[in-house]
Amino acid sequence: MSEWDWGRPEELSARMDAFLIDGAICDKLEEVGDPPFDASFLRGLGLTGVEFAAWKSRHPAALASDVVPLRTADSTAAPGRVYRVDGEAYFAALDITTTLPFADGSVDWVYAEHLIEHVSLGAGIAWLAEVRRILAPGGLLRVTTPDLATYVEGYRAGEAFFARHRKRMRAAGLGPPMPARRAFMFNQMFYLYGHRWIYDLDELRHALEAAGFDPAAVRRCAFREGVRPDVADLDRVLRNDESLYVEVTAPA
């Protein structure tokens, strides 16, 4: 992606949208069934969980999903349908502001990295309620999101956290160097990337409780550490300096 002016958030949004659309390409899409998808159907495909905000998951038993649909030269994944992608993985185009096309208790785990902050608090709670519905009793939800407390502490403590984060983003090739102003570094979390609501641990616990999860079951975790190592291993290194990692188990 060519460079942009960090001070023009509308330009960044347009470039990111174009980048996502350009990246959602595959060679072959084969639709494999009709919703609502139940546990028997998903397990028949070798799928036990859903990873949101991913065109392809590193988890061998994951259904990858994203609001931006995968497409081939002559077809596009229809919303809410499950497709076999290039003969080796599975994908569904899912909008988290709508009802998920899965039966109650149909998956053992759900993973979402840096997703919930892209919708309003109300929409986030509604999505979490849908996740609770589709999780099997005792199933696991792992959510990661930018941590408001980390940014507040970084702002108050000085330059160290922001300097590390700018260096990391630049090393990843994500645009030109970020401005070194602390106010910019704080504001970009709120106003860039399409963010709508930023969480700390208490705010995320509130949203989970409002969605029907037991707040006492909410656990703060470390990067790539959790009750299911196979799910925790989906955490990406790029975001671990700024992220809040939270797990909760569905009611039995």
Rank of each mutant, 00 (worst) to 15 (best):
Y191M: 13
R156A: 06
L192V: 12
V152L: 10
H165Q: 13
M189C: 06
T150N: 01
N187K: 15
R142T: 06
G154M: 04
P179E: 07
R164I: 05
F161V: 09
R166I: 03
Y151K: 02
A172M: 14
L192F: 05
L174W: 11
G158C: 10
H165G: 07
D147I: 06
G158T: 14
N187Q: 15
L192P: 08
P177M: 06
R170A: 09
A163V: 13
R181E: 10
V143H: 00
G173F: 08
L141I: 05
L140P: 03
V143L: 08
H165P: 01
F186H: 10
A160C: 04
H165S: 08
A163S: 13
A157D: 14
V152F: 07
Y151F: 09
G173N: 11
A172C: 13
A163W: 10
R168F: 00
A149G: 09
G173V: 09
M189W: 04
A163F: 10
Y151S: 00
L174V: 12
L148I: 06
A180W: 15
T145C: 02
E159V: 12
R182N: 05
F186T: 11
M169V: 14
L174S: 09
L141W: 05
A171F: 07
M185C: 14
G194K: 09
G154I: 05
F190W: 05
K167L: 07
P179T: 11
F161P: 04
R170M: 08
P176N: 09
A149H: 15
F162H: 08
A160E: 09
P177N: 08
L141S: 05
H165R: 14
T145N: 02
Y191D: 07
A183W: 15
Y193F: 13
P146A: 00
M189K: 00
R181M: 11
T150D: 01
G154R: 00
L148D: 00
L140G: 01
P179C: 02
D147E: 12
T144M: 03
A160N: 14
G158L: 12
L148T: 02
Y191C: 07
Y155T: 08
R166M: 09
T144A: 05
P146Q: 02
Y151E: 02
V143D: 00
G158A: 12
L192H: 14
L174I: 10
G194P: 07
M169S: 14
V152G: 07
A172F: 06
L140R: 13
V143W: 01
Y193I: 12
R156E: 04
R181P: 02
A149K: 14
H165W: 14
P177R: 11
T145I: 04
L148Q: 02
A163G: 07
A180V: 15
D147G: 05
G158Q: 10
V152D: 08
N187F: 08
F161N: 06
N187H: 13
L192A: 10
T145E: 01
T150Y: 01
Y191P: 06
F186L: 12
L141E: 06
A171L: 10
A160D: 13
L140W: 03
G175R: 07
A180Y: 09
N187W: 12
P176V: 05
K167G: 00
T144N: 03
F190G: 01
L148E: 02
K167D: 04
